[in-house]
């Protein structure tokens, strides 16, 4: 198929970006979206132009590196997958595809479609862990956990930290990302011990970094490649309220 790509080009973080149109021809419907960009880039290199920079790595939908906003949707038109897994059969021959980076104040553009998502690391560093050191832990089966709870924790833990929730949210809110981690640990006995401190620290860090507020539009859930439920946001709200009301000075 032949396509017109309208791609955001920005030389550096400081640079002023603009959209540039590119034509690509004879793209197989079985190629992935990133392979289509590879084809474009290889041509640009040969032609002596600067190839389009984008984040990507595992190309099997789990590392969370790829992050492209395609035709108004993070990770493109298909549901429940990342950009790298999205195949060109989702587009029509002759279509114009608008390709943009994630847009959010805490995710500044580094170059072209690459953005800096270290804000997510900062949120995890604020409390997204159980404070155990290596060694000296009890036997794994000493902590029985109801299967339903373990499964629900796993649902939350499936988050790949790609930032699609932030990109999709009209408020650039990171609530789904933060709540997925808070919820995972809130559901497990290992995480309960620090639950109150954790939720407050992580929410405070999220606010400090300049993410927007959640207005329950649920766009995050619709665009999450791992289809993480907004019920985790509710759980985080609950945890937060409980922590504020009950934690001691």
């Amino acid at each position: 198929m032949d396509l017109t790509l309208k791609i955001w080009r920005q030389a550096s973080a400081e640079g002023k970006g603009k959209f540039v149109n590119y034509q690509v021809q004879n793209i197989s419907a079985d190629a992935s979206f990133l392979e289509m960009l590879d084809i474009l880039n290889e041509r640009l290199v040969v032609e002596g132009e600067d190839p389009v920079a984008f984040d990507h790595d595992c190309r099997e939908g789990i590392c969370g590196a790829c992050s492209i906003y395609i035709n108004g949707r993070p990770h493109g038109p298909d549901r429940g997958i990342t950009t790298c897994q999205m195949h060109m059969r989702n587009f029509k021959d002759g279509e114009t595809i608008v390709i943009e980076p994630w847009r959010a104040k805490p995710f500044p553009v580094i170059k072209d479609l690459m953005v800096d998502r270290s804000a997510f690391d900062a949120i995890i560093q604020a409390g997204g862990y159980v404070s155990v050191s290596t060694g000296g832990v009890p036997d794994a089966n000493a902590i029985p956990i109801p299967k339903r709870k373990a499964d629900e924790a796993m649902d939350a833990a499936a988050c790949i930290g790609c930032g699609a929730c932030v990109a999709a949210c009209k408020n650039a809110s990171a609530m789904l990302f933060v709540s997925a981690k808070v919820s995972q640990f809130a559901l497990l006995p290992q995480g309960r011990l620090e639950a109150r401190e954790r939720v407050q620290k992580m929410v405070a860090k999220m606010d400090e970094l300049g993410f927007g507020n959640c207005t329950n539009t649920y766009a995050c859930e619709a665009e999450c490649p791992k289809e993480i439920s907004v019920s985790h946001i509710a759980r985080m709200n609950r945890e937060f309220l409980g922590a504020k009301l009950l934690s001691e000075k």
Binding site: Y129, V130, V132, T134, G135, V137, P138, D139, A140, N141, I143, P144, I145, P146, K147, A150, D151, A153, M154, A157, Q184, F185, L188, Q190, G191
Partner: peptide
């Protein structure tokens, strides 16, 4: 390793009795 990961909150698959 398994003990360590469970203590960290890794949500391994479990049986209905709550064990791994």
């Amino acid at each position: 390793i398994i003990d360590q990961c469970v203590a960290q909150g890794v949500p391994f698959a479990r049986e209905y009795g709550g064990l791994l």
